[in-house]
Design a binder for these strands. Structure first.
Length: 427
RNA sequence: GGAGAGAUGGCAGAGUGGUCGAAUGCGCCGGAUUCGAAAUCCGGUUUGGUGCUUGCACCAACGGGGGUUCGAAUCCCCCUCUCUCCGCCA
């Protein structure tokens, strides 16, 4: 959510910055609503002040046994006007806040202008894609040849866009998860947290999934939602909290399954594990002081990159252009891993600074200090990123570590999680 | 699933129709005292919003929503959540 003050003060500038995301702001409508809000709110509060004053006088008069008829007559006369003003004000504020909830975040000044994916800017590359004597297989062929990856059975049990993994492959998937969690919690300074996978609508509103993107979510019959990312439960830990300044920054990491309905991506990535309704992810979240959030974004992106480097997977870092930014993000780096089976880089992590956008929705604040004295609560900044998407990491390992005989070498750093094994081969 | 109790400030806890945004205690902040500290004493200490003369005024909020009333933390209705006991259960 944007700061309503900013819209009041400089609506044209806000509209301009949103235009770079391809979003058109109805400035006329906002100006109209603001003008009437202002007028009606002042009138309503005047009514309320008068009523409070009179009611207080009635109470005092009764206490002294005096006659209250004159006072009663005046206060009764306020009734209709007050009620009408209150109702109109409520209506306007509801409309304003509903509108405000659908406006995306403003891109940071360092974000390149652009319409879509093609305008994203590559920042750096790391690692060199390995060359294969024969055309590299994709993860589906590799996994199915090993009899460890089973899509048909997953479809039987559930439906399309689900997967069944067996034996050493299932274990490799778990090994990746453990490795990521251990690295972030033991070496990068994150506290590991275990969180609910079902959340309420307030939490979804807090991080920005609702009200605009309900169709991307799985909603349960009791009104709760399956999380599309650990970002939702982890970030909402600080909803409606005032954090002592000394506690910042807070760094949290969680592993969760993620559920996405993938409405609107029919026909995209239908083959394989790239785009599933259910996948696992390790997510890093940081709560920081506003002045620190861009440093935190660089740091957190580095933590995600460290996982790729330790797995020795080639990747590149891309800055999303204004038109490709997610709803809540002010700036995003995507990490794209090299997939030999597709001969292309594919997103494996997304690291974003949301500035105060989520914090404002959540009322997540910290207590500032001024010359040693406690100051006013101010909104924190939230930063998060995948570290990494586990399913896609597995895909990357299979494709980058495949051997000519159909086996797959296990990356060094995962072997301790695989009972010392160095290879996955057909039995 | 059944029965009962409850939800008030950072915490504990009072308040059942009127000067209550809320007693009291604890905590926290500042000051006094002290060589320093403890103890003690004094003062301060919720959040969101609006207006303008930017320092003041006003509005709203006692789990959430609605109602009664001139006036609601207090009365009524609905919802949510928490706790206790029983049942079930990893």
């Amino acid at each position: 959510m944007l700061d309503i003050q900013l819209l009041r003060k400089d609506l044209a500038a806000v509209a301009l910055r949103l235009a770079s995301r391809g979003v058109t702001l109805d400035t006329t409508r906002i100006e109209q609503l603001e003008a009437s809000r202002r007028e009606i709110q002042v009138r309503t509060q005047d009514f309320q002040a008068r009523r409070n004053q009179l009611s207080k006088q009635i109470g005092q008069a009764r206490g002294k046994g005096l006659d209250t008829e004159v006072l009663m007559t005046e206060v009764t006369g306020l009734g209709d006007g007050l009620k009408a003003a209150e109702e109109r004000l409520a209506g306007i504020q509801e409309e304003l806040s509903a509108l405000l909830m659908t406006i995306p975040n403003l891109p940071h000044e360092s974000v390149p202008a652009g319409k879509g994916e093609q305008d994203n800017q590559e920042v750096r590359r790391h690692g060199v894609p390995r060359s294969f004597p024969l055309p590299a297989l994709d993860h589906v062929e590799i996994g199915e040849n090993l009899d460890l990856l089973d899509f048909p059975t997953a479809v039987k049990i559930s439906t399309s866009r689900f997967v069944l993994m067996r034996g050493p492959l299932a274990r490799l998937h778990r090994a990746l998860t453990q490795f990521m969690l251990d690295t972030h919690s033991q070496e990068h300074g994150y506290e590991e947290v275990y969180v609910p996978y079902l959340v309420n609508a307030d939490s979804m509103r807090g991080t920005g999934q609702l009200p605009k993107f309900e169709e991307d979510l799985f909603r349960l019959s009791n009104g709760m939602y399956l999380i599309p990312t650990a970002e939702v439960p982890v970030t909402n830990i600080v909803r409606d909290e005032i954090i002592p300044a000394d506690n910042l920054p807070i760094r949290l990491v969680a592993h969760t399954p993620c559920f996405r309905s993938e409405a609107g991506s029919y026909g995209r990535d239908t083959r394989g594990m790239i785009r599933q309704h259910q996948f696992d992810k390790v997510e890093m979240v940081q709560f920081v002081r506003p002045e620190d959030s861009y440093d935190a974004l660089e740091e957190l992106t580095g933590h995600a990159e460290d996982i790729l480097q330790r797995l020795d997977l080639p990747y590149r870092v891309v800055t999303l252009c204004s038109g490709d930014l997610g709803f809540s993000a002010a700036k995003t780096y995507d990490l794209e891993v090299w997939l030999p089976g597709q001969s292309t880089y594919r997103e494996i992590s997304s690291c974003s600074n949301f500035e105060a956008f989520q914090a404002r929705r959540m009322q997540a604040r910290y207590r500032t200090e001024k010359e040693g004295k406690p100051g006013r609560p101010e909104l924190i900044h939230t930063v998060n990123g995948s570290g990494l998407a586990v399913g896609r990491s597995l895909v990357a390992v299979l494709e980058n570590y495949q051997n000519a005989d159909g086996s797959v070498t296990i990356p060094e750093v995962l072997r301790s999680y695989m009972n010392g094994a160095s290879i996955i081969a057909r039995e």
